[in-house]
Design a protein around this nucleic acid. Sequence first.
DNA 1: CCGTCAAAAAAGATGCATCAAGTATCGTGT
DNA 2: ACACGATACTTGATGCATCTTTTTTGACGG
Lengths: 226, 226
Amino acid sequence: MPEFTTLDHASLNGAVYGALCDALIEGRFQPGDRLKIRDLAEQFGTSVTPIRDAILRLANDEAITFRSPRDIRIPGLSESRYMEIRAIRIRLEGLAAETAAQVATSADIEALERILRENEAAIAAGDRLKGTQLNQAFHFMLPQIAGLPVLNGILRRLWLQMGPHISDAYIPGGRAMIDHHYPVVEALKRHDPAAASMAIVDDILLGGKPILERIERGEERIARRA
Amino acid sequence: MPEFTTLDHASLNGAVYGALCDALIEGRFQPGDRLKIRDLAEQFGTSVTPIRDAILRLANDEAITFRSPRDIRIPGLSESRYMEIRAIRIRLEGLAAETAAQVATSADIEALERILRENEAAIAAGDRLKGTQLNQAFHFMLPQIAGLPVLNGILRRLWLQMGPHISDAYIPGGRAMIDHHYPVVEALKRHDPAAASMAIVDDILLGGKPILERIERGEERIARRA
DNA sequence: CCGTCAAAAAAGATGCATCAAGTATCGTGT
DNA sequence: ACACGATACTTGATGCATCTTTTTTGACGG
């Protein structure tokens, strides 16, 4: 996460929370993985308290679940839950795109285009991690441009839940994740809210197809909901 | 909160979190109030740890803020932030109403009408607390009927942020909070998604007017954002 | 009477010891 | 060899002591 601030987490104190968020989004956890506070504490070179704090926050975000009081895991993502998240994202990112189209400055457009260029480079280099980060950076730029911090926080949480599931689907997706970003930028340039909204919806629907397909295939055996 | 489960909080452990959520929603905290962990611990008859856990979760929900590391407060609600939350609610509760209209059973309708009746009684009795609780129960019933748990969680968090601000505005509102609920139920009866969506939007817009007016008046002097 | 600085008190963060509950392991008896 | 049970271990929750930082407060000087 070099220059595009992936997620504005760690809004309050909590370095561990931020690190775990990153890990989640970068796909360094697999659905079903079990987390142990003491292990993480050792891993992070700290005591259990900060880890517990982070875990608690993540659990509150529903990014991790307590299957039983002593069994902390990365939850699966059922198809119905994915569809729900997708429907919410459509509404919310649609709102963000509309608003952004109305207020976007040329500097905003340039920032988006810079992300797009870097994303192209990442795809060309086959850098899956950087690809997902830049895809995410693009999506989070819209509410930021629109000046909608609450919306940003909601999307951040949703992303946390999808994190462990999208990174695996990235390679099969290939260019699917970025192709639909260009029409968004075009719509923002023309200050066309309706077009911007439709473009981002297209991206969510079509760009997310590989993820949905992966969930539909066999992955739900792990998909235990909280 | 006798029979209508106001909020499904305390999803994982954490009785204190649930209690604080209730307190927030029932308006027992004022914007600007300072929270002290040790005081709350004494108040709840427990040690600091469970309180800290709850505070941390609430802070993660942005229902309370750390103005500085040692200064925990109920945040104000700026006009722009209220407008943002309102816009989000319109999109999200609209989605919930649409979906609910498609799947609502007669039992669902009856549950809604029961809430309405109780709310009428609460208004007649001038019971502000019960009125806000039942208003809230109505709004949370829609995503529940629709089978949208993620949406429910998002709205729960937004409500937490509005909590300290709506209860004060309830009395001046009078019937405004309930009048617009009837068209929602009618639309659900007819299984008319578009009408249901429009009805709930009306409620958010018109029913929320007293709140907005109160914020617009002098209350923003306390309105410090995180 | 007001401003400034320092000392003390307040208060959250951290670490850790202990508790309780669940899980796994090992041994015994059939 | 297998089933059952007791013991030991794992692991999160809780409570608490301590540390650090901030805020209050009070005294002194202007």
